[in-house]
């Protein structure tokens, strides 16, 4: 990783953060992700992780 940023200047970071805050990009994806959250995707993922953990402990 570079120690001196030539792309991510403070101006560009501020520009990206402003667009994010205002929902200029990623709006549809975030709305869909929230829909999927309502369908319990994180709980399903945690259940699969727990299953893996049990399997690892039983080996």
């Amino acid at each position: 990783m570079n120690t001196t940023n030539k792309i991510l200047t403070p101006e560009i970071i501020a520009q990206v953060q402003k667009a994010t805050k205002e929902g200029t990009f990623g709006k549809a994806k975030i709305a869909h992700a929230k829909e999927l959250l309502q369908k319990g995707i994180l709980e399903q993922m945690e259940a699969l992780l727990e299953q893996k953990k049990q399997e690892a402990q039983n080996m």
């Binding site: 792309i7 560009i12 520009q15 990206v16 667009a19 994010t20 200029t24 990009f25 990623g26 994806k29 975030i30 992700a33 929230k34 959250l37 994180l42």
Partner: peptide, 26 residues
């Protein structure tokens, strides 16, 4: 590449080309 918070500990990966000084940066 930008990680946008959807909910606590849950982040959306957004990526794209930087457009310069346009109003929408990515």
């Amino acid at each position: 590449v930008y990680f946008q918070e959807i909910s606590p500990n849950f982040y959306n990966l957004a990526m794209g080309d930087y457009l310069g000084e346009y109003e929408i940066p990515i």
